[in-house]
């Protein structure tokens, strides 16, 4: 009970126990996230095996260049996030803030490019719902492909938005000097979340954009 750090909550014995609890909790949460996205991935796989041609047609209409750029942008954001965690361990306030800010910028860039792609698809009549006006071969099943495209990337984008909100909170707290060499748990936990969201995209990109392109 010697360690009375200001960040130590009343019900923990020491900071180590508090960190281990947060860490286990975050990993458990990420497992729930895997299963949450897992439902979508399972559905995607079922329909892709049922309608391979339609999925190839649908996929071919996606913009690989923009998707590819976004993949690079997101991987870079994971790097800046990892650097933010690294400097948080050292307790370097300015560097934490800088790298968190860069992560937000890259995340926002991803969302911006995604918005451009979405707009193109809406104008092309590929958004599911009453506006869907694609009239080529396998029209109904292409619509299902685009339903998965919008549900999966939409759910991913929602996670990005939440992530940017969390990063903003971290910046505010970091500027107040909340994270030191002794205590930087929130930076590390939100970092885990950010990497997870990144990895989801690493799976989404080939599954959605790269079907039947050799």
């Amino acid at each position: 009970m010697a360690n009375h750090h200001h960040a130590l909550q009343h019900h923990f014995e020491d900071l180590e126990q508090q960190f281990e609890s947060a860490s286990l909790g975050m990993w458990a949460f990420l497992i729930t996230e895997i299963l949450f996205f897992g439902g979508l991935f399972a559905g995607y796989l079922v329909y892709r095996s049922l309608y391979p041609e339609a999925f190839a047609v649908g996929s071919y209409k996606l913009d690989v260049l923009l998707g590819g750029v976004n993949t690079v942008v997101l991987i870079c954001s994971s790097l800046t996030m990892a650097l933010a965690v690294y400097w948080a361990h050292k307790g370097e306030r300015t560097k934490i803030v800088v790298f968190l800010f860069l992560t937000i910028v890259l995340g926002a860039a991803f969302l911006g490019i995604k918005a451009v792609e979405y707009t193109h698809k809406f104008h092309a009549g590929l958004a599911p719902g009453n506006a869907f006006s694609y009239d080529g071969p396998f029209a109904d099943q292409v619509r299902i492909f685009y339903s998965f495209y919008f549900s999966m990337t939409g759910m991913h984008a929602l996670h990005m938005v939440i992530g940017i909100g969390l990063l903003t909170y971290l910046i505010i707290r970091a500027r107040q000097g909340a994270y030191t060499a002794e205590y930087s748990t929130p930076v590390e936990m939100i970092g885990l979340y950010w990497h997870f969201v990144d990895i989801v995209w690493i799976y989404l990109f080939p599954l959605l954009y790269l079907i039947g392109r050799s």
């Binding site: 996230e33 949450f36 439902g39 599911p128 719902g129 299902i144 339903s147 919008f150 549900s151």
Partner: peptide, 19 residues
């Protein structure tokens, strides 16, 4: 989480008839 995403899909189906 699996039933959660399933419910989301039902809601999307009702709102946008995603099929």
């Amino acid at each position: 989480p699996v039933v959660a995403i399933t419910i989301v899909l039902v809601a999307l189906e009702r709102l946008f008839s995603i099929g």
